[in-house]
Structures are given as structure tokens and as C-alpha cells.
């Protein structure tokens, strides 16, 4: 693998990380903390939405984010032929 390919592979990886960490930030710090009062005006069943994100929703999203990253990176590794 030449230097240019390495650079491209690393750049694509960083892009995935940036996107996924933005979502990570929005669901926890955004929905669960900074915007909690606004979202609490919305109700889903017995939950106020902000409270739900802080104690339930953010955790579900975290799990999904990791598995999405696993999939994206497995594909990327294959594309650049750096898988094991």
C-alpha cells in the first residue's frame, strides 16, 4: 500500500469518526443535557422526551453507533485491502 492510499484510507476513517461522534454528542450532550427542557415539552407515552434521551435513548444510540462503525470500517478495510 503506497503513501497516497494510506492517506486516503486514513481520511475516510476520520470522516466516519467525525460523523459518528457528532451524533454521539448530539444525542447525549444535546438532547439529554443542553436541550433537555425543550424536549421535555414533547411526550412519548409516559416519558418526557428529554428525560428519555438522558436515561434511555442516548445509550441505545451509543450501541448502534459502535456497530455502524464496525460495519463501515470492515467495508473500508476491504476496499483498501488492509483487512486481516
Amino acid at each position: 500500500m503506497n503513501a497516497e492510499e494510506r492517506k486516503k484510507y486514513w481520511k475516510e476513517n476520520l470522516r466516519y469518526v467525525a460523523i459518528l461522534l457528532s451524533i454521539w454528542f448530539v444525542v447525549s450532550y444535546g438532547f439529554g443535557i443542553l436541550l433537555v427542557d425543550v424536549l421535555n415539552e414533547i411526550r412519548v407515552g409516559g416519558f418526557k422526551l428529554g428525560f428519555w434521551f438522558a436515561q434511555q435513548g442516548s445509550i441505545y444510540v451509543f450501541v448502534v453507533l459502535i456497530f455502524v462503525y464496525v460495519r463501515l470500517m470492515n467495508k473500508l478495510d476491504k476496499k483498501y485491502n488492509v483487512h486481516e
Binding site: V17, L20, L21, W24, S28, G32, I33, V36, F51, A54, Q55, S58, I59, F62, L65, I66, Y69, V70
Partner: peptide, 20 residues
């Protein structure tokens, strides 16, 4: 609600672990 710090804090770190 204040207890949310532990719920998010002790799970969100795994996203950092897996990605970084």
C-alpha cells in the same frame, strides 16, 4: 434526572473507546 450523568457517562465512553 441528575442520575443521568452516570448512565450516559459510564456508557458513552465506550463509543470513544471503539472509535478512538
Amino acid at each position: 434526572y441528575d442520575g443521568s450523568v452516570y448512565l450516559m457517562g459510564w456508557t458513552g465512553g465506550y463509543v470513544l473507546l471503539a472509535l478512538l
